[in-house]
């Protein structure tokens, strides 16, 4: 079951195309990475999903229904450029934003209390936003995004500007929200920052989707058949099917070697051969990063 389906979206601004025939399917209760360089069209796509913009053509379906104003309450959106009313108190601001999402006052107050407590910010409720540190403001912004318990949470460049401690806090909260049933879309140009969290991924470049699918599948598709070995004592000779791509000395008689095996070849065979020649400390597959996949995909196209 897909929570969100985007079908053949086109959107252009006066001077350029922002989205060209983009379709996506985002499974329920998953973490979806919408990846691509700056200016690829990610934010435009998100603004269409959040009803801020209208697509020139194509449609968006949420939970089997075509997107409409009622879906606003189901979506939580943390834009790339964040901000809050500086001269408004934390509690009031959260209440205001929650009520704009259609939350009942008493329920909103209750949840604000819970969230502030959870993120250790209860004593700040009466302070103005401008009196808070940047990190605290970001926590408040995150709370505002999820207060109405949206089924779909969209986080645009979620970790930019967060300090490492807050990044971990927020990551934990996001995983918890997913456990509770939420679906999360991460949009970022820093692909490495969310790679580990995502179940599904779509790559967007120059207004077009160039790749999408479950992360494991994509990685599988783009596997390099390379293995990295840390070993004591040099490797003398290898079977002609194996190719040594790289070899470095990393310590006293300790080496790091990258070996490519033929397609559809079982790595166990390589391991077997290596064991006879050297003492193995580490043996792992070289998995391409999303960044590398993106670059090779873009090269492939051009």
């Amino acid at each position: 079951m897909f929570l969100l389906e985007v079908k053949n979206i086109y959107k252009s601004y006066a001077d350029h195309a922002a989205l060209t025939d983009v379709s996506l399917q985002i499974p329920n209760q998953s973490i979806f990475g919408l990846l691509g360089p700056n200016g690829a069209g990610k934010t435009t796509l998100i603004r269409i999903i959040t009803s801020i913009l209208q697509a020139d053509s194509g449609s968006v379906w949420l939970n089997g229904e075509q997107l409409n104003r009622n879906h606003i309450q189901v979506i939580g959106y943390l834009p790339e450029e964040r901000g809050l009313y500086k001269k408004m108190r934390v509690g009031e601001q959260l209440l205001y934003l929650a009520r704009l999402k259609g939350l009942e006052k008493s329920l909103a107050i209750e949840r604000i209390g819970d969230w502030l407590k959870k993120l250790d910010m209860t004593e700040w409720a009466g302070k103005n936003i401008e009196d808070l540190s940047k990190g605290m403001q970001q926590k408040i912004q995150f709370i505002a995004t999820v207060l109405h318990e949206p089924r779909l949470i969209i986080l645009d460049e979620p970790f930019s500007g967060f300090d490492p401690i807050n990044v971990n806090i927020i990551k934990d909260e996001i995983l918890e929200l997913k456990e509770k049933g939420a679906t999360i879309i991460f949009s970022t140009h820093r692909m490495e920052s969310v790679e580990s969290l995502c179940d599904h991924i779509a790559l967007i470049n120059k207004s077009e989707k160039i790749l999408d699918g479950p992360k494991k599948e994509i990685k599988q598709r783009y596997r390099t058949n390379k293995f990295e070995v840390d070993h004591v004592g040099p490797i003398a000779t290898l079977n002609g099917e194996y190719q040594i791509v790289d070899n470095q000395t990393i310590g006293n008689n300790i080496f790091n070697t990258v070996i490519r095996i033929p397609h559809d070849h079982n790595p166990n065979l390589l391991l077997k051969e290596l064991i006879t020649q050297t003492e193995i400390h580490r043996f792992s597959e070289v998995v391409p990063s999303m960044n590398e996949i993106f670059i090779s995909k873009v090269r492939e196209q051009s």
Partner: peptide, 16 residues
């Protein structure tokens, strides 16, 4: 201008 400058406007117009 304040809303635009603070960038809160995008959060709000995702609600109204």
């Amino acid at each position: 201008i304040e809303e635009k400058y603070n960038r809160i406007v995008e959060v709000i117009i995702s609600s109204i």
